[in-house]
């Protein structure tokens, strides 16, 4: 096969693309689906600007062929907000100045969002491990740690409130 029909579920929506075998998941997301939040940084799997969640795992979309991703469930940074409302993590990034130039931010957000989905109270070390593959050349990472911990606290108290209302 040199040209393939690719089916992906992106942010909950089934999408189709015709992709030459050399194309990456990253280029299909950006060029075919218009999801330009995911960035192309190094193109070699080093920087993490292109991180998306594929089948529940964070991956560098520049290092995954579209063909390899065929049939996958993909979440990009555009999938974090819902009904026009930013996710608490996105608001916390703004509130704690977790970015300056913003180029690494989509990848950072996806990595941190994936961390929060399995850990509702991450330590500083756990945040740093989760973003070990996301390079930022502006902020020094402390703002990102603060943002994740702030968002985690907000999500925990929202959860506690939801439980109380349910009772």
């Amino acid at each position: 096969m040199t040209d393939m029909d690719i089916r992906l579920t992106v942010n909950g929506r089934l999408q189709h693309a015709k992709a030459g075998v050399m194309r990456t998941l990253l280029t299909v997301l950006r060029e075919d689906f218009g999801l330009t939040g995911t960035k192309d940084g190094c193109s070699s799997g080093d920087c993490g600007a292109c991180v998306v969640v594929m089948n529940g795992q964070v991956v560098n979309s520049c290092m995954v062929l579209a063909a390899q991703a065929d049939g996958s469930q993909v979440t990009t940074v555009e999938g974090l907000a819902s009904n026009g409302e930013l996710h608490p993590l996105q608001r916390a990034f703004g509130g704690t100045w977790a970015f300056q130039c913003g180029f690494c931010t989509p990848g950072m957000l996806v990595s941190c969002h994936a961390l929060l989905s399995s850990n509702d109270n991450p330590s500083r070390e756990e945040v740093l491990t989760a973003i070990a593959g996301n390079f930022c050349r502006c902020t020094g990472y402390q703002g990102v740690v603060n943002a994740v911990q702030q968002a985690a606290a907000e999500l925990r108290s929202a959860n506690a409130e939801a439980v109380l209302q349910h009772d």
Partner: peptide
């Protein structure tokens, strides 16, 4: 090895 994205692939 690598970061989380590398270990997941």
């Amino acid at each position: 090895v690598g970061g989380p994205q590398i270990r997941n692939m």
